[in-house]
């Protein structure tokens, strides 16, 4: 298990146009197959941490290695191995794409120039649809689905990519409890298969039964980083958030 797939060494990043760094001097090692929950109060830098790992932000100092590649110099290679379920998506009701097309888009980054999707790609899409329980929606237009269904489609889009690392930003925000448990179950299974999960969440009522690594952030810094039982995650995060508000 001691095979770091994500490694941040003394990293400081800043949003474009901002004068103050959003996260400062962060160091973090995440091993292959780990299930990491990132918590903390609003504005703590959780989404920024995910964006930094995904190589989407300028790094002022330090190094970020994902799958052995430096995110600054090997962005395209890393993005082929990385899935990222974004927060705050908003699809127009007339977005001209079906669920199946959206999932296929997850495979496009893996295809080369001028290459069309092949049988492997369609199989991966089929598997993801089945995994997320949305096979009946495959021909529906994504813009006309409910928020929860769209959330599931976006997770499936990333699963179709067969990533080594899956970053999720508030994946449960639009889901009811039953669906959260289902999604969490799917995530646990893919983590067991060796995929590293890093999930920012405020909802801790659907967590894997096994121990998870809790990373709690506060004011752009990591204040807690340890493996704890799932039932302790909510209290731990809440305790630190309350400390911040006090």
């Amino acid at each position: 298990m001691n095979d770091p797939i994500i490694q941040l060494d003394d990293v400081t990043t800043i949003h474009e146009g901002s004068t103050h760094p959003t996260i400062q001097n962060i160091s973090l090692k995440i091993n292959r197959g780990e299930f990491v929950i990132v918590g903390g109060p609003n504005g703590a830098g959780k989404t920024t941490l995910l964006e930094t790992i995904a190589g989407r932000l300028p790094i002022i100092s330090g190094t970020v290695l994902v799958c052995g590649f430096d995110v600054v110099h090997h962005g395209p290679q890393i993005r082929k191995k990385l899935g990222y379920v974004i927060q705050n998506f908003d699809f127009d009701p007339y977005t001209p794409f079906t669920v199946e097309e959206v999932l296929l888009m997850g495979r496009y980054g893996l295809l080369g120039f001028c290459k069309r999707p092949g049988s492997d790609d369609f199989t991966a899409v089929e598997q993801s649809l089945t995994q997320m329980g949305i096979i009946s929606l495959r021909k529906s237009h994504i813009g006309r689905l409910s928020g929860g269904q769209q959330q599931k489609v976006l997770i499936a889009h990333n699963l179709a990519k067969k990533p080594d690392v899956l970053l999720l930003d508030e994946p449960f925000s639009n889901l009811d409890l039953t669906t959260r448990e289902h999604v969490c179950d799917v995530l646990c299974r893919i983590a067991d298969a060796g995929v590293t999960i890093v999930m920012v969440s405020h909802a801790f009522d659907a967590l894997p039964a096994r121990g998870v690594r809790a990373v709690v952030m506060k004011s752009g810094k990591i204040v807690l980083n340890k493996v704890i039982p799932p039932e302790q995650v909510q209290d731990t995060v809440r305790h630190i958030s309350n400390d911040t508000n006090a």
Partner: peptide
């Protein structure tokens, strides 16, 4: 015709296209 997959992903969502590895 040549860049249909890149164009369609960008139309869907530019951020998702970038994450998918599209320039």
């Amino acid at each position: 015709a040549v860049f249909y997959k890149e164009i369609s992903t960008m139309i869907f969502n530019r951020k998702i296209a970038e994450i998918a590895g599209i320039q």
